[in-house]
Amino acid sequence: MFQIARKLLFRLPPERAHAVALRGLDLTAKARIGPFKPSRVDDPQTLMGVQFPNAVGLSAGMDKDGEHIAGLATAGFGFLELGTVTPMPQPGNPQPRVFRLVEHEALINRLGFNNRGAGNLVENLRKADTDLPLGINIGKNRTTPLESALEDYESCLSTVLPWADYVVVNLSSPNTPGLRDLQSGGAVGGLIRPLMARRDEFTATNKRRVPLLVKLAPDMNDRELDETVEALLECGIDGLTATNTTVDRSAVLGNVRADEEGGLSGRPLRDRATAVVARIRMLSGPDLPIIGVGGIMTADDAVEKIQAGANLVQLYTGFIYHGPRLIQASAQAIRDVRHR
């Protein structure tokens, strides 16, 4: 059934198909049936003080404004990450801004943090009814200069902390000019330390600690990655997400869409994202929580991320190409490996 649905959806422009698919999930939630009859794999684990029903989550970007939580919860995920949200609403980049590279099982997007703002997300979270952990991914507005980026991140963090099970600081989208400069080893500490302090103030007041993570790009070389990870470890970061999309096009040369600006996701990103997970694990030791994301198109890909050092994984492009069964198969494969 999913293959039939995908054929129909892939006849639509990508953003239109995205909206139609999410509305379809919402309808299945209202009808109290799972999409194409998946079931959630039971493989609970507690990480960062949060209990995850299984290790497979939804990556940020699919439900930026928290409008489809009920529908996505029917698909078998163990957690959902919402956003990226910014302090003020913004439309993102002009359309078209999402492109399919079907033969590569890939997407290129240059969405540009299109969202209705952190306050709107909170209003949707007030109405949400789910038992899944919810992560919230935060960014800065495009018009905010880099030297004022901390103000945007502090504003977003303060807005979403009461509603988040964890928060991810997105410094790695290639679609906001200059944003990746903030993840360099020399700059990242000056941004993250005040955010950690803001989180700690919330903890002291509310007696609830919300983990703070940073999402990194796959395009740093080893030296740059090492410096950034070391700086984040010195800040006492609670975890890392690896990775965001890539600007590298070497794996899709010759594709008619290869020269589109934006971040490439899907199968071509798999090996690099896994290598970044492995290097972070080597640098951080055994205890730092890592969410592995990038190019998971099969259950074996999910297991590979876990074996490289990830504690949890996330899907986005793989979900678009392979549907809810990929969630179930990945969660089951991870459970089997962990319980051998």
Results as ranks from 00 to 15, higher is better:
I4C: 09
R6W: 06
R6S: 14
L12P: 04
P14N: 13
R16K: 15
A17W: 11
A19D: 15
A21W: 05
L22F: 01
L27V: 15
T28R: 00
T28A: 14
K30T: 15
R32M: 10
P35G: 14
F36Y: 14
D42Q: 12
D42L: 08
T46Y: 00
F52G: 13
N54L: 05
G57T: 07
L58D: 04
A60N: 11
M62H: 04
G66H: 04
G66P: 04
G66K: 02
H68I: 08
H68T: 10
T74P: 03
F79C: 13
G83W: 02
G83C: 09
V85N: 13
P87C: 12
P89Y: 12
N93W: 01
N93K: 01
N93F: 00
P94T: 00
R97F: 00
V98I: 12
F99S: 00
A106Y: 09
I108Q: 04
L111K: 00
F113W: 07
R116C: 12
N124W: 02
P133W: 01
P133I: 14
G135S: 02
I136T: 01
T144P: 07
T144W: 05
P145K: 02
S148M: 09
A149T: 10
D152T: 00
D152M: 03
S155R: 08
S155I: 10
C156K: 09
L161E: 08
A164V: 08
A164H: 08
D165G: 06
Y166M: 13
L171W: 07
S172W: 13
P174Q: 09
P177T: 01
R180D: 02
G185L: 08
G186A: 07
A187N: 14
G190R: 09
L195G: 15
D200T: 14
F202Y: 15
F202S: 14
T205D: 15
N206E: 15
R208I: 03
R209Y: 03
P211N: 08
V214Q: 11
V214D: 11
L216Q: 07
A217M: 00
D222K: 07
E224H: 07
L225G: 12
E227C: 07
E230P: 00
L233H: 03
E234V: 12
E234H: 04
E234R: 05
E234N: 01
G236F: 04
I237V: 06
G239N: 02
T243P: 03
N244T: 10
D248F: 09
V252E: 13
V252Q: 08
G254I: 11
R257K: 03
D259P: 00
E261Q: 04
G262P: 14
L264K: 12
S265H: 05
S265D: 13
A273F: 10
T274R: 12
V276F: 03
R279D: 01
R279H: 14
R279Q: 15
P286S: 06
P289Y: 08
I290S: 03
I291C: 10
V293W: 11
I296Q: 11
I296R: 10
T298F: 07
T298Y: 10
D300L: 08
D300I: 06
K305S: 05
I306K: 03
A310E: 10
N311H: 14
N311F: 05
I320S: 11
H322Q: 05
G323A: 10
P324V: 15
Q328L: 04
Q328M: 07
A329H: 11
S330H: 06
A331G: 13
Q332F: 07
R338F: 01
R340L: 13
